[in-house]
Amino acid sequence: MIDVMYFAWVRERIGLPKETIETRAETVADLVEELKSREERYAMAFADVSALRVAVDQELSDFDAPLSGVREIAFFPPMTGG
């Protein structure tokens, strides 16, 4: 089980802030493919992953990062703090 979180317009497109999913995906990219194949709203949110950032267990990471032992994944657009 893995907690998947969405922020900003990714959250709005998918329509929820967080979900817990059962997955056999080995990497973040595999998980993205799995989510995209689920429903149109996921396909829309992940249409261009170059426009997205990912955090693995609350650390900025890459789409080729492995999911083994990971508890929390978050997808969001580039950050706009300050």
């Binding site: 922020f7 900003a8 955090a55 900025l60 978050a74 657009p77 580039p78 950050m79 706009t80 703090g81």
Partner: peptide, 21 residues
């Protein structure tokens, strides 16, 4: 500005829009 997870959204009389990085 670009490494802390904050996202700004501007809400105007015309609607709302996420601020692009």
């Amino acid at each position: 500005k670009s490494r802390a997870p904050f996202w700004k959204k501007e809400i105007t009389s015309d609607g709302s829009e996420w601020v692009n990085s």
